[in-house]
């Protein structure tokens, strides 16, 4: 059995999903069921006191592992605070660190993310930091106790695919932690490519949630992740500039 291990937990699915941007939150449950995704992200926000909305937790099956993100945090301290609120609210000890103050590209602050990871890992959290793809940052995160790294493929919600491919490859080939490609994956082929490269998992929110049919989209991504993973494990041969004959080059018929 091909198991993904994050912290002390084991998962059979390598597709992580998110709860943002769904037009109908009732689609989250069948989306999880049909895609097999076992980990889903959620966010924390102030209650709108004039118009309270339904808590997103009401739409997620209890068997799903919750991955609260620290979106809204602009520095390590705020991320730590949000992580503690999520854990106190009974969301378990997984946390996706997200420290962002760049409004245009939503690029994460790797330096603050390392600081927050160090504090939270010491506090017993299973920390999954969202980062700009940088191998040095990944090594530092490993040293301070991260349980996985989540480098981005392209900016959040952009659907632009693996624009950072070469940097992701460096990380995948050298990381001792699971590598989860997060952000920017817009097509099943992007997800397949990430898995073929040897990523341990992918996180997909926008592409599924904003699809005309999110449930079918989630199934498509799930199949793509499985195909890419299987291809990686099968160790396909590398590309070549020149042809490599697939039929024997001897014993031609004399015509």
């Amino acid at each position: 059995m091909d198991i993904l291990k994050i912290g002390d937990r084991e998962f059979s699915s390598r597709l992580l999903t998110g709860t943002g941007k769904f037009r109908d939150k009732n689609e989250i449950k069948p989306m999880l069921k049909q895609s097999g995704s076992q980990i889903i992200t959620i966010a924390l926000r102030r209650v709108n006191l004039e118009n309270p909305q339904d808590n997103i937790l009401n739409f997620i099956p209890k068997t799903t592992t919750l991955l609260p993100n620290t979106s809204g945090a602009r520095n390590a301290q705020e991320a730590v605070r949000i992580a503690h609120i999520a854990r106190d609210a009974g969301c378990g000890n997984f946390v996706k660190i997200e420290v962002i103050h760049d409004a245009l590209y939503l690029m994460p602050d790797n330096e603050e993310t390392i600081k927050a990871t160090k504090i939270l890992a010491k506090d017993g959290f299973i920390v999954l930091p969202y980062i700009s793809p940088d191998i040095v940052t990944c090594k530092k995160l490993e040293d301070v106790g991260a349980s996985a790294v989540m480098p981005l493929g392209s900016p959040i919600g952009s659907n632009a695919g693996l624009q950072t491919k070469n940097l992701l490859e460096m990380i995948i080939q050298n990381s001792n932690l699971p590598v989860i490609i997060d952000a920017g994956i817009g097509l099943p082929s992007h997800a397949s490519m990430a898995m073929e490269m040897g990523a341990d998992a992918v996180l997909i929110n926008t592409a599924i949630a904003t699809a005309n049919d999110p449930i079918s989209a989630a199934i498509a991504f799930s199949l793509a992740v499985k195909a890419g993973r299987m291809a990686y494990l099968a160790k396909l041969e590398n590309q070549s500039r020149y042809a490599r004959a697939s039929s024997p080059l001897t014993g031609f018929l004399n015509l």
């Binding site: 992200t41 966010a43 102030r46 997103i56 979106s71």
Partner: peptide, 10 residues
């Protein structure tokens, strides 16, 4: 005082 809840997010 902060009153916080869980919302959709990625």
């Amino acid at each position: 005082v902060e009153i916080i809840t869980f919302m959709g997010g990625g």
